[in-house]
Write a protein that binds this DNA or RNA. Structure first.
Lengths: 343, 343
DNA sequence: CTGAAAGCGCTTACAG
DNA sequence: CTGAAAGCGCTTACAG
């Protein structure tokens, strides 16, 4: 049909009005400025010509793109898809779209990607890549780009964030194990450079302390990464140093699965010999053997909140920095049980 | 610092040249038109001012956004993240970005989302939502939008596609089971409205036929959806109607996991009583119990190819429609074994 | 209620 | 090699 997309002036010519009148009609907010009769004719003609506003032009004219840049460290990590879905839903409801970029931990690449996004005139940024001490976050704040971090918190508190209440999550995990009768509980922590690793570790220690157990009974090991392999290595080392351990709380589910591997290698059974509790409840954790007891964080809810927060931040540039923490819940499955008598 | 972003004319004023000269220097392709000395001064000034091209303006001027719209049915389905990653990598290498939209099966919503994307002036579209008979694909082709479908094929062949060679995949699965000694093999098929479900079903039948087994020995059931629950229901029904079945090939991994549930409910063991083979090899299939034998499709490779193809299609609008099929491989794990003697 | 005009920040033929 | 100018398709104060 139409080889070139119809523009405002095409519709105007076809209707016999000025293009500014067409513009007013095409925007619901200003449609009231035009008489109903003229509006109707314009709308009919616009439909007939298949008119579709050119967003590049309106972005240029208004300095507002209605696009939010979302930067993720790794969309194949199952933590992120539901966060992204939540973000998209929250955004779409308000007429915004997300433009997503995946980027690893390399700081230069992150700057590059953020520059692309800013060049694209995004109205704001949602970063899931933030580290506790993150120069990229600081750069964005300096450039006064509306910003929120999701699932991660930048420690200087210069940017709003939406995270899971990791302290509470660890409290739930530890309480669960205490109630089962465990007294030798260890933690395999995630990277301390990320807020998740850091807060979960602190939450673990706080929960142990609150329980009245002597702190020495609670060992913390740091996995060298958030992978199955790192989890396996960490538990092997942990059990070498602390063979009396009857329960392990990990910083994330993948590490917990790695713990299964370590136990299998040692000929130990879960949960009979060692209970394992994960964190996140990513998909399929109910299908592994044994089904993993884990702390379920509100991935989708974090995304929705992050969308809400960024739009709010855009509305009111001087809005206060907010820390939103969503409460996780414990999902008790087969990987946790009372310690063996005598253990 | 700079409250407003620097523009070409800011850099021009600071350097004492005309903004068109600055424009030429900022674009590597035209930089050669400007004397090295002037270029150097301009570049220095641009850096000092933090100049960043406004892509809305250049999109408007060139009618080229260097953005590709990617439409996914569900990013939380683990098939899609690696496809998306592949797309992004393939695109970024050529200076393009992806703008991703998640949208369910509803046709009106799909049209809405595609309209948003086209309004955004995307240069092309990659659709992972395509059905075998898909009016939305047809609409895009009519509007002459450069288009490729990924993981799915529209049957009228009007759009290029990048898919897994499903016929070959089923051949591998069936051959594996035949070699183990199975003679009563059934298929739980995916939706026939999707090319994956359709081609896998046909591939299964072709493989059985090629094997010389009488076709009656090969039953096909259609799961009512690609979920664990549907897989469970399908296998329960299948075993009721064909209790002699010793091996089942499913249309996807989630359905295979549902089969595990059905077997557990019936008190049957996998693989001792019934072997199960999945399709896709999504993450964690090596961690379920038993680890799932499955056909691994090249998710990431499909994404990379889709990116390459869409760019090629944009380059040469009259390029021929291509069908690219990537070869999958069989990953034999614990869910398949010889049938019991006498079975 | 509607039109005329300036402007958003680029690109790119056209001159010189 | 560089400049001046038109134009991309919108929005929006300003008139009337």
């Amino acid at each position: 049909m139409s080889n070139k997309a119809a523009t405002l002036s095409d519709v105007a010519r076809a209707t016999g009005v000025h293009l500014s009148t067409v513009s007013r009609v095409m925007n619901p907010e200003t449609r009231g400025m035009v008489s109903a009769e003229v509006a109707k004719r314009i709308l009919a003609e616009a439909r007939r010509l298949g008119y579709r506003a050119n967003r590049a032009a309106s972005t240029l004219a208004t300095r507002k793109s209605n696009i939010i840049g979302v930067v993720l460290p790794d969309i194949t990590n199952p933590v992120f898809p539901p966060i992204l879905t939540g973000i998209e839903e929250g955004l779409r409801k308000h007429g915004y779209q997300a433009i997503v970029a995946n980027v690893g931990a390399d700081e230069e690449e992150q700057r590059f990607v953020i520059n692309l996004l800013l060049g694209q005139q995004v109205d704001g940024l949602i970063l899931a890549t933030a580290r506790r001490d993150d120069p990229v976050v600081k750069m964005c704040v300096e450039q006064r780009v509306p910003l929120v971090t999701v699932n991660r918190r930048e420690e200087s508190g210069i940017a709003s964030c939406v995270i899971s209440d990791d302290g509470h999550g660890m409290h739930l995990a530890v309480r669960h194990l205490l109630e089962l009768g465990h007294r030798n509980i260890a933690h395999i922590a995630g990277l301390d450079s990320l807020s998740t690793g850091h807060f979960r570790r602190r939450g673990f220690l706080a929960a142990i302390e609150a329980s009245g157990l002597e702190a020495g009974a609670a060992r913390v090991f740091e996995a060298s990464g958030h992978t199955r392999e790192c989890g396996k290595a960490a538990l092997l080392e942990l059990l070498r140093q602390a063979p009396g351990t009857t329960a392990v709380v990990t910083g994330n589910d993948l590490v917990a699965i790695g713990c299964y591997d370590a136990l299998a290698q040692l000929g130990l059974r879960c949960p009979q010999d060692v209970s394992i509790v994960g964190h996140n409840d990513v998909p399929f954790m109910d299908m592994v053997r044994p089904p993993l007891t884990t702390v379920r964080i509100r991935h989708h809810g974090m995304g929705v909140e992050a969308a809400r927060l960024i739009l709010q931040t855009i509305e009111a540039r001087d809005a206060p920095v907010l820390d939103i923490r969503l409460k996780p819940e414990l999902v008790a499955r087969g990987s946790s049980a009372p310690p063996r008598a005598g253990a």
